[in-house]
Amino acid sequence: MRYAMAVDTKKCVGCSDCVVACQTENNVPIGFCRDWVVEVTDGTYPQLEIEIRSERCNHCENSPCVRCCPTGASHYAEGGVVLVTPNKCIGCGACIASCPYDARYPHPDGYVDKCTFCLHNRVEKGLDPACVSVCPTKCMYFGDLDDPNSPVSKVLKTRKFKTLIPEAGTNPQLYFLI
């Protein structure tokens, strides 16, 4: 099993519903977020091109955050999802410094927090992650890459895609359809 997500940059309008849905679903402390929307503008007016991306932890297959965690708090869970076990985390910040995407943040309670792909609270119950299910343009696809019929496998077969900073060697599992 290999959970992954694809975000369609051609459909995303940057409404930030995914951000709010995540904050509500996962009780993200006020002032923090586990996902965010990036808008990239290329060119000079009037020749402008815009790419909008809903970003979060990439659940990297070769994740520096898991590698550098001294206690094993950061670990690979089912389907390659990268999780943090709060009562193993000492809050040393090594994983935060190690993430090329700045996807982690220090939770006010002391441990480190980040996107979980909603693994325990939704995905294990057969639901999509909160961000995926709330998106009004249906621009996100989630599922198991080992299952050829999962939404994410299907869309990656038909569309061109990219990952972020592949040169960092992290092998991200968050794909952007372009």
Binding site: V37, V38, E39, V40, T41
Partner: peptide, 8 residues
């Protein structure tokens, strides 16, 4: 020119 912003 490229500009990158976190809009959320």
């Amino acid at each position: 020119m490229r500009e990158e912003l976190i809009v959320s």
